[in-house]
Design a binder for these strands. Structure first.
Lengths: 222, 222
DNA sequence: TAGCTATTCGAACGTTCGTTCGAATCCTTC
DNA sequence: GAAGGATTCGAACGAACGTTCGAATAGCTA
């Protein structure tokens, strides 16, 4: 049995393994999203992939590892994409728009993985849970630091900042419970809407930053 | 075996039965909230109540019925409390504040039940699921109609209204994932904060309604 | 105290679960 | 076409699950 994907022989076979792993995890995400992690069995996963029950254990050590990989992958995808895109951006308002847009864009294109992440990640145990929480915290810190910068530490306190961040995360992470693509439009529209509500609310509609936010909200740069 | 609580003999014994049922469901909510509905077993519930495994089937027909009762009870509690309180209130801004406050107040005082409702209700099947969804829709319609009244149908469209309602619900329903009473304060503070963000954002900071909302937000009536 | 009903229990049933293991098959390389 | 690792499979394991059922107990009424 192969113990570590990176140890395999190089070339074509390596690629095939990674592709199949991705395929298996994608189907797993669909099954977990539809049925819930604990209710879904690996026998159902077998039905969804066309493989045998035992065959899946070639791609993950346990059901929990499969869950971890799904959660970790989509969470890192959001965080990495945001950090890559934000490298060239200094304006905190633009960085906030980028964070919201990236979050929503990946949420809509990976709805099932996001549902699994939001809904089932806390079922993880031990090291798996610790790693996911650590990445989530890194993500939260990114948002909090942007908000702190936007507000310029002139008003409010740390508790308000925490509430603001959680309020925004709540709006975004709740999407998987109601979003329907044919009704609700695409990521850009949702970004304009949710960022609009949040930013006007967060800045209180007064001051120079708020007026600049008003211009950005009326003429979004992307 | 008793088939319907309301058929029992009257008086003390009746009261005892209802009290014990409430006790059992409260413990069940704690276990379901902590472990998740599918992972939690009735044997664990037995450990939490001090009763035997079989004894629980005197209070509910199935594990699914227990879940339904928990969800239905807390959902109705929010809706009924809000409708009762809102009877005497005409101003839609005040009604919105009442809705948010009631939702948050009951969320904080029944955090475990709310977590079960938000997290596990979609695991229900058949008639149970239909009933919960129906009540949720009634609740959504209440909010949507208030928002429509506030906006006065002057701007935006039905889709925007839907997004606004879901954005607000998202902020409120996400609370169970992060709320810590010693850090985040009580329902009134959360209401002022979340309603403030949402209302300024929803009204766009312009027009007479927005100015009136500004006054209400600065001098909350409760 | 006797009798009746409400309440609780121990024990078991059939099912499904995650996981393991040795064998079978596939695919590449020589 | 033989060799050898990569990949897949059938079959089975023990454990845990939701639910049932008849018996036992508790508590009230007569």
């Amino acid at each position: 049995m192969r113990t570590d994907p990176s140890n395999g022989q190089a070339g074509e076979s390596r690629q095939t393994y990674d592709q199949k792993l991705e395929f298996v995890l994608q189907r797993a995400a669909e099954v977990f999203a539809e049925r819930g992690f604990h209710r879904a069995s690996i026998r159902e996963l077998a039905r969804a992939t066309g493989m045998s029950l035992a065959g899946h254990y070639y791609y993950f050590r346990s059901k929990n590892e499969a869950l971890f990989r799904i959660c970790d992958h989509v969470l890192r995808q959001i965080l990495d994409t945001f950090e890559e895109r934000a490298k060239a951006i200094d304006d905190p308002l633009e960085r906030l728009r980028l964070l919201v847009f990236t979050h929503l864009e990946i949420s809509l294109s990976h709805m099932r993985e996001m549902k699994v992440l939001s809904h089932e990640a806390e079922s993880l145990r031990g090291e798996y849970l610790a790693k996911i929480r650590q990445t989530k915290k890194r993500y939260y810190d990114s948002l909090a630091s942007i908000l702190r910068e936007i507000r310029g530490d002139r008003r409010g306190n740390g508790r308000d900042l925490r509430l603001a961040a959680m309020t925004l995360f709540g709006s975004m992470n709740w999407i998987y419970t109601w979003y329907r693509p044919e009704v609700d439009g695409e990521a850009k529209r949702l970004t304009d809407f949710m960022l609009g509500i949040f930013l006007r609310g967060f800045l209180g509609g007064e001051g120079a930053t708020a007026r600049r936010a008003g211009r950005i909200l009326r003429h979004p740069s992307r």
